[in-house]
Amino acid sequence: MRSRPYGRLMTAVLCAVSLFGVTALSACSSSTASAGGGGDKITLGFSAWPGWFPWQVAEEQGLFKKNNVNIELKYFDSYTDSINALSTGAIDGNSQTLNDTLAAVSGGAKETIILVNDNSTGNDKIIARDGINSIADLKGKKVAVEQGLVDHYLLLLALREANMTEKDVQLVPMETGAAAAAFKGGQVDAVGAFQPFADTALSRQGSKALATSAEFPGAIPDHLALKADLVKSKPQLAQALVNTWFDTIKWIKDNKDKATEIMAKRGGSTVEAYKAFDSGTTIFTLQQNLDAFTPGTTPEHLNHQAQSVVDFMMSTGLTQKAPSLDGLFDDTFVKAVPKS
């Protein structure tokens, strides 16, 4: 699942960009940079999040081929590894959260967001044991969370809303799957986790979700990010990927049962369990993409949300350097999607 310790990501990025320099970074990316629709193969990464499983459907139903994309779809068991792979140029694109992309960019990675896959609308959760009934009740309690990960961000948002800070709890840094297991085993009082690890945590008797991403609309957008130089040199490829995504969403709508079966299998869950994730992840339509890319002053607009995330990351010490937002968002491709 989405699992990326901030420290490990920054180390990988800084090693690629600062320590070894531009030459090493270019060498790292040279094997994948020469890609195009129907040309050399490119590598697209994704990991276990409901909003990214449609890529598996695209591959199995030949929708990449339909759009003349020669692609290696690379599934990462560890979201951490997928983030690092894009940051260092080992892959050409990846599906990832906005705050994780901003963390990578602040470390020197050159990435461009060309598509919004989804928004988390409940599948990220802060879960507590029996007897803890509010965020305020977490004061002094042990809370397991993966530092720098999206649910660390969610925890900080929830604490701020309760007029608290991270200093008011005993933060227990732990990989998300291990954190959910530790909570289930009674080793900590609360946990920040996303699906399906959230369900693992909720299997502890008496446990409950104190806060979810549904309470912070627009705070956790997930998207497709490509290497910035690839977007510039191969715009036809970027367009083909975006077209494939919307072809896939249409195919899923028209073949719901088969699509759910494919996505559940990729996620290692049953069809029944996967269906329960639906409401917690909102797949964006083309119009929602167009609206999100349009500059605005509400959380529904990517530029506004990005600035909010940057301000928050700086104020909480998640990053020491504010990333530049110049060129981060490119709406060219969602604007050019053929209207069906």
Rank of each mutant, 00 (worst) to 15 (best):
218 G>M: 06
257 D>H: 10
246 F>T: 02
49 W>T: 08
102 L>P: 00
174 M>I: 03
311 D>R: 07
326 D>H: 09
26 S>T: 14
308 S>N: 14
300 E>F: 10
155 L>G: 02
243 N>F: 05
251 W>C: 01
75 Y>F: 13
186 G>P: 01
170 Q>C: 04
240 A>S: 13
53 F>A: 14
79 Y>N: 11
59 E>L: 15
160 R>K: 15
328 L>S: 03
308 S>R: 13
30 S>C: 13
277 F>D: 00
221 P>Q: 13
285 T>V: 13
169 V>C: 05
82 S>V: 04
83 I>L: 12
68 N>C: 08
309 V>I: 15
194 F>S: 14
72 E>P: 00
135 I>E: 00
314 M>N: 11
222 D>Y: 08
339 K>T: 13
271 V>W: 02
33 A>G: 02
194 F>N: 12
31 S>G: 14
102 L>M: 09
182 A>F: 04
76 F>Y: 12
328 L>C: 05
99 N>P: 05
328 L>D: 00
177 G>Y: 08
183 F>I: 08
16 A>L: 06
284 F>T: 01
340 S>F: 12
191 V>I: 05
4 R>W: 06
192 G>C: 11
291 D>K: 15
76 F>M: 03
217 P>S: 12
21 G>C: 11
173 P>G: 13
61 Q>D: 01
194 F>A: 15
220 I>R: 00
38 G>R: 07
252 I>L: 03
53 F>I: 08
315 S>P: 01
260 T>V: 13
240 A>T: 03
241 L>M: 06
47 S>M: 13
67 N>C: 07
61 Q>L: 04
211 A>V: 10
19 L>C: 14
80 T>N: 14
226 L>D: 00
137 D>I: 07
201 A>M: 03
21 G>F: 09
13 V>C: 04
236 Q>S: 13
14 L>K: 12
304 H>Y: 15
180 A>E: 02
335 K>F: 12
122 G>K: 06
218 G>D: 05
105 V>A: 08
66 K>F: 06
46 F>C: 06
126 I>D: 02
107 G>D: 01
260 T>S: 12
198 A>S: 15
165 T>G: 03
231 V>A: 04
254 D>V: 10
165 T>I: 09
74 K>V: 08
322 A>K: 13
282 T>F: 07
327 G>Y: 02
58 A>E: 00
290 L>G: 04
248 T>C: 05
272 E>Q: 12
65 K>E: 10
52 W>Y: 14
260 T>D: 14
235 P>L: 07
54 P>K: 08
133 N>I: 06
67 N>T: 06
10 M>A: 10
137 D>H: 11
219 A>P: 00
289 N>C: 10
7 G>A: 14
226 L>A: 04
15 C>Q: 14
96 Q>T: 15
161 E>A: 14
91 I>C: 03
299 P>W: 07
201 A>K: 01
154 L>N: 01
156 L>Y: 01
321 K>T: 15
92 D>E: 12
34 S>P: 00
262 I>E: 00
30 S>A: 15
55 W>M: 10
14 L>G: 04
35 A>S: 11
245 W>R: 12
70 N>Q: 10
309 V>Y: 00
242 V>E: 02
134 S>P: 02
310 V>C: 04
261 E>L: 09
90 A>M: 07
2 R>Y: 11
89 G>M: 12
122 G>I: 09
263 M>I: 03
133 N>V: 11
320 Q>I: 09
291 D>I: 13
218 G>F: 02
185 G>F: 09
87 S>I: 13
